[in-house]
Simulated scan of single mutants.
Amino acid sequence: MRKLLFTAASVSLLVTATPSIAAPCKDAKGKFTKCPPKGPVKATRCKAANGKFAKCGTPGAKPI
């Protein structure tokens, strides 16, 4: 009985989660568009004039 309840609960979770995963991206007019990537945003790094990494706000630092 316990296995049957566990199986029924897991199947119901899979069925309800599938439409939210497969939802396509739309623009303001309702047309389908390519979805933006969901990965982490890569931080910009800067180097100082001497070639070492520095904070991007320091004078002389340039983004690489």
Score class of each variant (00 low, 15 high):
residue 1 M to T: 07
residue 1 M to E: 14
residue 2 R to G: 05
residue 2 R to K: 15
residue 2 R to I: 06
residue 3 K to Q: 08
residue 3 K to M: 14
residue 3 K to D: 09
residue 5 L to Y: 13
residue 5 L to G: 05
residue 5 L to E: 07
residue 6 F to T: 14
residue 6 F to L: 13
residue 6 F to P: 01
residue 8 A to Q: 10
residue 8 A to H: 07
residue 9 A to M: 07
residue 9 A to Y: 05
residue 10 S to R: 06
residue 10 S to C: 13
residue 10 S to Q: 07
residue 10 S to H: 10
residue 11 V to R: 07
residue 11 V to M: 15
residue 13 L to K: 05
residue 13 L to P: 01
residue 13 L to S: 09
residue 14 L to W: 09
residue 14 L to V: 11
residue 14 L to E: 13
residue 14 L to S: 13
residue 17 A to W: 10
residue 17 A to F: 08
residue 17 A to E: 03
residue 17 A to L: 14
residue 18 T to S: 12
residue 18 T to A: 10
residue 18 T to G: 02
residue 19 P to R: 02
residue 20 S to Q: 14
residue 21 I to T: 06
residue 21 I to S: 04
residue 21 I to K: 07
residue 22 A to P: 00
residue 22 A to T: 12
residue 22 A to V: 13
residue 22 A to G: 05
residue 23 A to V: 12
residue 23 A to Y: 10
residue 23 A to M: 13
residue 24 P to Y: 07
residue 26 K to N: 11
residue 27 D to N: 13
residue 27 D to S: 13
residue 27 D to V: 08
residue 27 D to P: 02
residue 27 D to L: 14
residue 29 K to N: 12
residue 29 K to S: 11
residue 29 K to Y: 09
residue 30 G to D: 09
residue 30 G to N: 10
residue 30 G to M: 12
residue 32 F to Q: 15
residue 32 F to R: 15
residue 32 F to V: 15
residue 32 F to N: 15
residue 33 T to V: 15
residue 33 T to R: 14
residue 33 T to W: 11
residue 34 K to P: 00
residue 36 P to A: 14
residue 36 P to S: 10
residue 36 P to T: 09
residue 36 P to Y: 07
residue 36 P to C: 12
residue 36 P to H: 05
residue 37 P to F: 08
residue 37 P to S: 15
residue 38 K to N: 13
residue 38 K to V: 12
residue 39 G to A: 08
residue 39 G to P: 00
residue 41 V to C: 08
residue 41 V to Q: 13
residue 42 K to W: 03
residue 42 K to P: 00
residue 43 A to D: 14
residue 44 T to K: 10
residue 44 T to H: 07
residue 44 T to Y: 08
residue 45 R to H: 01
residue 45 R to N: 00
residue 46 C to F: 02
residue 47 K to Q: 04
residue 47 K to E: 02
residue 47 K to V: 01
residue 47 K to W: 04
residue 48 A to F: 01
residue 48 A to D: 02
residue 48 A to T: 02
residue 49 A to Y: 04
residue 52 K to S: 11
residue 53 F to A: 04
residue 53 F to M: 05
residue 54 A to H: 00
residue 54 A to G: 06
residue 55 K to N: 14
residue 55 K to Q: 13
residue 56 C to R: 02
residue 56 C to D: 05
residue 58 T to D: 05
residue 58 T to G: 03
residue 58 T to H: 09
residue 59 P to D: 04
residue 60 G to W: 00
residue 60 G to R: 01
residue 61 A to L: 08
residue 61 A to H: 01
residue 61 A to Y: 03
residue 62 K to T: 10
residue 63 P to R: 02
residue 63 P to I: 03
residue 63 P to D: 04
residue 64 I to T: 05
residue 64 I to Q: 01
